[in-house]
Structure formats: structure tokens, C-alpha cells
Nucleic acid binder design. Sequence first.
RNA 1: GCCGGUGUAGCUCAGCGGUAGAGCAACUGAUUCGUAAUCAGUAGGUCGUCGGUUCAAGUCCGACCAUCGGCUCCA
Length: 619
Amino acid sequence: MPQRRLPMPASASASSTAPAAGSTIHLPRTSESEQLLRIRHSMSHVMAMAVQKLFPRAQVTIGPWTETGFYYDFDSPEPFTEADLKAIRKEMIRIINRKLPLERIEVSRAEAEARIKAQNEPYKLEILAGITEPITLYTLGEDWWDLCAGPHVAHTGELNPQAFELESVAGAYWRGDEKNAQLQRIYGTAWETAEQLAEHQRRKQEALRRDHRRLGVDLDLFSIEDEAGAGLVFWHPRGARMRLLIEDFWRQAHFAAGYELLYTPHVADISLWQTSGHLDFYSESMFGPMQVDERQFQLKPMNCPFHVLTYASRLRSYRELPIRWAELGTVYRYERPGVMHGLMRVRGFTQDDAHVFCLPDQITAEILRILDLTEEILSAFDFRSYEINLSTRPEKSIGEDAVWELATAGLVEALERKGWAYTIDEGGGAFYGPKIDLKIEDAIGRMWQCSTIQLDFNLPERFELEYVAADGSRQRPIMIHRAIFGSLERFFGIMTENYAGDFPFWLAPEQVRLLPVTDEVRPFAEEMLGQLSAAGIRASVDHSGDRLGKLIRTGEQMKIPVLAVIGAREAETASVSLRSRRDGDLGSRPVAALLESAQRANRDRAPALELAGRVEVGA
RNA sequence: GCCGGUGUAGCUCAGCGGUAGAGCAACUGAUUCGUAAUCAGUAGGUCGUCGGUUCAAGUCCGACCAUCGGCUCCA
């Protein structure tokens, strides 16, 4: 068994020292560094002062630090543009160079109110009303101050004018509520040293290099077509090939884990969504209904009602439980214009959805099985570091106390038995049941929530699901929803960014590309292609007629794991000269050796070919 | 949906009132070549869409669509 499938404990927290490919500079997060916190806090004040100097009509609101910098929200009659950032930045440098002191002053509520009123800053007044004593403000030089709890640097001389940058302007709502005034937010980043700033920018570049939208075009994996509409994904042959491999692996793992697979319709009579309750609490995320004959149909935003109907299609016995049904179900959800994002946020996507119907005393065992399967599937894509969250009963919820307690205890016990660290989000569960969410960490330290396990006391109730218990009575089963990838599209995007497009051998859409050096060897290349294809290896011959250097360049740009150079020497000896994307030139091997190792790699879902010792062929 | 940016050939971009340009890719020809770009030629765009201003609009204005960075929301 390959090492990557061994069980590994989940890490309880995100690591900020994430592997930043080739870098040794540590970038502390704000929450890890008192000095950075001061710097960023003060930077936002400096920025606000600069903005008010350049835009006197701009009113200040709030300006907190973030993990990599800071922002400040303004209410300004004139819109800020990216070009304005340059001027603001220059003004900030001027302020920094004046080495202005930042002084903490504790004031009475009345004095704070008087000072704010003198400046006509209505947002500050609102903030004041919401805070408790002691009320503090920080001055910045003689003319500027802001209501703030601190802490700050002693004077702006402690701020490094070479270690900050203003990054973007964005809209934001006062207090985060879209019913409130629209404010303008300026984001900045600030560090102790110019080197840290450079490293931060290098990481941003790295994220850009890994962007799945970029790679989707470059590697010809998928596209989103204007003509068809936003948020609808077209899987190109290469992307579709990968998706099929992912799905095949997923199906295999599910059958092995005791699941059966379902196929259910994409639309259904709208009454189904009335029964399920989605029409009441989910309709704003649903596509509108469509009229068919005398009935109204609804495109599905979720698969669960279909699985529930399948359950209810006949009488169930307690002996049948647990029932585990999974489906790669494509759902459509209405997303507001402006929120779509590559594969990460779309309007049509496929969930790897499953529902487990079980007895109350089976909860723990079923959750544990799901955790095991989740780990097996995620680690196959090299996601081995998790952050787990358990969400408990919210105030507004349905169901009996005893059921909630039993279910929550079941989730806790499963996590304990799995040995996974987790945090508890008290009251963060859905109204219909507690849940476990799992985030995965990618190669550059970002966390992504994909998997979710939710208990549901609502749907079995609404659809009056039953089973016949041992004593002949009718009982209600427990229902568990779970998804591991969450959305196949989104997972594909995350995975693409995680690998930066350098997919492991088993997953690569094109595994081996044969590069004929001259026209004379094309027939041999074709013959070899036949052998590779017959052995289930995804291969092609590059017939562009370019010179070898170009063929290799093109192959490398397409991130093909194995390039096989075929010249006269190779054709004579039935061999290939292999070049691996990961390990470079591997030297010559008999064709049979390539076949054998590629087949083995596919079978083992290996990241790369493993070849026996180099064989010298030819002259 | 909201704020700001962007939309010119398949891709990356230049042109910013006066009859559309480059590099790469594609195609054709020559070259038959040994580990990240051989040379030459050809073709390709109603400049996102619709409307307006103007003698004249990729170029100015408006609306819409898409997209990028955010907000809100979320798989």
C-alpha cells in the first residue's frame, strides 16, 4: 500500500509557515506578532489621515488589521480609483517620514462625543455608542486622531516606508450589511522589512501562477462560455478525462465503503420542494420554476429530496439500516451576478452527495466510517492536513433536546475515536441538526472547506420517513447528509491550484507524449502509441514537425509528466529516451519497461513513474 | 445585487476622434533536426453587445452582458 494512504492525524490549526516553494523567509501573521499588529494598526491610521488630507470630504469609519495587512473603510462622495492609491501612498510616506507620535488618550464619553461632533464624523459617533469604557483615542501628530483601542507604535518612524503597499480598492457595506451605506475600502499590506514585503508579493505571484482559471485555459481543461451564461462549466477533453478518473476512483472507494449509487432526475414537480421546505427557506438560491403541461417543475438545487423519495418508495425494515446512498448529482443554484468565480463559485455543479439512513445507535459508527472515507479520498489528492469544526445546536432549531444531545454526542465520539483535533462552534449548526465541517490545507497554506457531514432531523419528519422496528412499531430513521469533495467543480479548481497544474502521473490527462526526432521514426512512434493506448496509458504523438527542443518545450509547458524522445537509435532498439517532468532526463529504457511502470503507476495511483536502473541503448 | 477596474485576432498586449497592429499559436513551404522556441510566407478582428454624440467612434457618453479585485452570500 502506498505510503500516502496511511492514516495521518489531522493538524488542528493552519500552519502559517506553509511551504512556499523555495522560500525560507517566514511571514508572521498579525495574530502571531505584537509588533506587526502595532504596525498594521498604525498604518491604517496613517492611511486614513492621508486619505482625509487628499479627500477632505471623506469620512472615516473603521480600519482594522488583517492577517497580512490592514484596511480602512471610508464614506467618500468621490470614488477612489486605483490611480488614487499612488497619491495616497505618497502622502502616507510623507506622514511616516515626519515621525509623528501616536499617543493614547483616555477620555470621558462626553468628551469623545464633543470631539467627534466638532469633526462631523457620524460613523465615529455610531462606533462610540457601541463601545464601553474605557474610551480611548489615539492621536497621530497634532491634527489627526481616531477612536481606537490600540495598540500602536510609538511614532510613525517605526513604520517602514519600504515595507508597505496599497493593494486594492473595494466596496464594502457599513457594518457588513448590504442594507447600509456603501463604503469604500482600501486594502493595504505592511511588514517590518522590505524583504518581508517582497516575500508577500512573491506569494501573491505564486497564487496567481497557480490560478485554476489561468491553468484551465493554458492546459485546455475547461472553459466558461459567455454565450451559454455565467457560472456554467464546459469540461474540455483533458479536463473531462481527469474528472472521469476522479469519479472512477470515487465510485470505487464508495462501493468498497458499503455505499450503493443512485441516479436521480434533474427536475421534479415543484410540490416536492414544497414538502422538503426548500421553497420556503432556499428559494432565493433556486432557479425559477418552469411550466410543463399543467404542472410546475423545479430544477434541483439539492439532491436530498430525491434520495428521501427513493427511501420512501417502499417500506423499510430496521434490518436494512444503515442504508448508504451516494450520487454524483448535478445541481443548479441561482447565484447573484458578480459572485461567480472560475470553478470555485458556479451556477451548475456536481455534488458528491450521499445520504445515510440509520438507527440512532448507529450514528457514531456511521460518522466514523464517513471520516475514514473522507480521509481516504482526500489524501489520494495529497490533502492530508485538515481543520475540523463541530457545530452544535443553534437557538432557532427544530427537534427534541434528547435527539440533539444524542446526535451531538455521536459526532463528538466519532471525532474522538478518529483521533482528530477539532474546534467547536457553539450554536453554529443548521436548524435541522449538528454538523462537522472539514477544511483542507493546500500547498501554499490556504484553507478550503470542502467536506461536510450534517445530521438532519427535518427531512425525515417532513417526508414522514419510517422503518419497521424489531417490535413491529414504525420509527423514524436518522438521516445524515455528507459530501467529501463538496462540489466536483470546486474541488477540481482547488486541486488544480494545489498541484499548480503539475498533476500526479495517475491523474494527468496526457501521461506520456512521444516526440519523434525525425519523420523516419514516425511509424515506430505510432506503433508505440498503439501499445501504450492498449495498455490504458493516456499517450499521444506530437506530429507538429518541430525540432526536438521545441517539442520538449511544448510538452513541458503542457506539464506532461513523461516525454519520450524517439530517434533512430530508439527505433532500432525498441526503446525510448525518457524525460520526466519531475526528475528530468531519465535516459533510455526498453519500451516494455515504460509500459510496465506506467501501468503500475496507474494501478497504484502513483505521483510519478518508478523505473528500474537506466539502460544504455544504442551507440 | 453593490463599489472600483477591465473587455481589440485562439493567447498576451499596443493603438485612445480620421480607413485596425505586434509577438506567440494556427496554416503553407523549406529544413530531418537529440532534451525548453529553425527559417520564410499565408490567413485570421463588423475592436463584448445595443443605443447615442460627431462630418467621422476600439477611441467620447449611456445602458446591458461578461470578467477581475472586494463587499454580501455560499459548495
